[in-house]
Simulated scan of single mutants.
Amino acid sequence: MSEPDLKKLSINLATLRGQCDLVQAVDVCLKHGITAIAPWRDQIAAVGLDRAARAVRENRLQVTGLCRGGMFPAATPEERQAAIDDNLRALEEAVALSADCLVLVVGGLPDGSKDIGAARQMVADGIAAILERCRNAKMPLAIEPLHPMYAADRACINTIDQALDVCDILDPDNTGGIGVAVDAYHVWWDPRLEAALARAGEGNRILAHHICDWLVPTKDLLLDRGMMGDGVIDLARLRRLVLAAGFDGPQEVEIFSAEDWWKRPADETARTCVERWRTHCQP
């Protein structure tokens, strides 16, 4: 079997958050032959958008996504408008980086609310408010469903089907500009995973594919993601399903690991990402 093409590997810079700023992380990735990244907005702010865009441009990097927009639900109209305004700033940053998509972590329940249906409507309304601007800028929006444990505080969209429902409401004719980000950590458990990915493929709705592993036990539900191969997710099968659905873009390694990988040298983390991607994530 031939070696997999490293152009099909991206590093979400959350994976190196504990060791590097954005520019340093780019250098680490390039050292290991990785030419695709996905930065977070706070990492961009820390070095400045101009410097971040220059690092991308001068090194001819693919930006597989900008993390993140979203967080639409809020208790007041003023707060909801502030979220929309912030998403439009995220759009400008994504365009400056020539990102493949703007990833949306949509937000959970507003303070004091127990109405998850209303929160989901606020998500749809918020995306609708920015969708035309994003289309005009040719920047696709990738709704990322998060595991149900995050439904209250981070994302009230929790399955690929729910994300696709929003896509179908806002883009019923499938003219493009909106789709989903498939993150292994968040969707691996879904009994409808295969059918949902096939549905996404019918509309060419898959815009990103994120990978890491689910550890047993998981010590922290946010900050204890596993390196590929250290947990229970069948990442090779997931990749086969994603490919069958028509998405062949890079697999983006996104590992939040406060007590393990963020404490190791960045060089070791990046090298291990490459090794494990080769051995555990190929279809």
Rank of each mutant, 00 (worst) to 15 (best):
D27F: 13
P191W: 07
R41L: 02
D168I: 12
V216F: 11
Q62A: 06
D230F: 13
H280A: 03
H280W: 13
G112Y: 11
R41P: 00
L146R: 09
L241W: 14
D85R: 08
R51K: 12
F72R: 10
G176M: 12
R199G: 03
V232P: 07
G117A: 02
L221W: 14
L164Y: 06
T35S: 02
A118T: 05
W40F: 14
G48Q: 11
G203C: 10
A236T: 07
W261D: 02
S113A: 15
A14R: 03
T76F: 13
Q24R: 14
G249N: 11
A129H: 03
T64K: 01
Y185S: 03
L235R: 01
L13P: 01
L6N: 09
E194P: 00
N136S: 10
K31H: 06
V182D: 03
A25E: 03
A118S: 04
A196G: 01
D267A: 05
V95F: 10
C20I: 13
A270D: 05
R278H: 10
D183S: 07
K8D: 12
V242D: 02
C167W: 04
D21R: 08
K114N: 14
H210D: 04
N204Q: 15
H210C: 05
K114Q: 15
L164V: 02
G107H: 12
D100N: 10
G107A: 13
D27W: 15
H32M: 01
T159N: 08
T76V: 07
L215E: 13
D173G: 07
D171Y: 12
E78K: 13
G108S: 15
Q43F: 02
A99H: 12
P283Q: 07
V106L: 05
G231Y: 12
L91E: 03
K31R: 15
G33H: 05
L223F: 15
G65C: 04
D86V: 09
G226T: 07
L215Y: 14
C20S: 13
I157G: 03
A198M: 10
C67Y: 04
R120F: 01
K263P: 00
A200G: 00
E252D: 11
T272A: 15
S2N: 12
A36T: 10
V56P: 01
R237K: 13
T218Q: 10
F247N: 05
L241A: 10
A74M: 11
L66Y: 08
I211P: 00
A208E: 09
G48L: 09
D220E: 13
W262S: 06
L66M: 08
N204C: 11
A52M: 03
T269N: 04
I169Y: 03
V95N: 12
R276S: 06
C101R: 09
C273V: 15
L102G: 00
N12Q: 10
D42W: 14
Q19L: 13
D115K: 08
R51W: 09
I160Y: 05
D234A: 11
A200F: 08
P191F: 08
Y185L: 12
I169Q: 06
I157V: 14
G33W: 05
